[in-house]
């Protein structure tokens, strides 16, 4: 098996580029805690709505301009409905589904997480720019999927 020197060089260059990508991703993931949402906690989908976390869901201030909210993603809405927060607020979202798999996506942000029945998903974001952000379900969840959306207004 003979490998031409240009091919060797190309494979080295190509691999180095991939390694650079991986290194950047690894630094962000492990040192800057910017990894993808990966919360691991189980919940019975059939009792989500009665559970302690999701029963009295609403925006809760937990610190200096820092909020927490539990959202039930169900066919075909996010409960509770539209949200309003001040600019610069950091919001910690906790999500679960009582029925099928949903997606939780806030446009113009990196908030994008799957809500799989049986699991609790968590994702956080700091809203620096004022405006009305669209929250939508980005995983097909049934014939009303396209109606599953809310807004989050940053003042």
């Amino acid at each position: 098996m003979h490998i031409h020197r240009y091919e060797k060089l190309w494979l080295i260059i190509g691999s180095l580029i991939l390694l650079v990508f991986l290194a950047i991703l690894a630094i962000q993931t492990f040192y800057l805690e910017m990894g993808p949402p990966s919360h691991a906690e189980m919940i019975d989908p059939q009792t989500v709505k009665e559970s302690e976390i999701f029963a009295d869901a609403g925006l809760k201030e937990i610190g200096d301009n820092e909020y927490e909210i539990a959202i039930v993603a169900e066919m075909f809405s996010f409960q509770p409905g539209d949200l309003e927060i001040p600019a610069g607020a950091t919001v910690h979202f906790t999500l679960a589904s009582p029925d099928v798999t949903h997606g939780f996506k806030i446009t113009d942000t990196n908030v994008n997480v799957m809500v799989v029945p049986g699991h609790i998903s968590k994702v956080s974001h700091t809203f620096d720019q004022p405006g009305e952000y669209l929250i939508l379900c980005n995983e097909y969840c049934g014939l009303g999927h396209e109606y599953m959306a809310n807004t989050i207004t940053v003042n």
Partner: peptide, 12 residues
Amino acid sequence: LSGTFVSVLIIA
């Protein structure tokens, strides 16, 4: 294989 090498570098 110089042309090939130039071409793959463009891909890079």
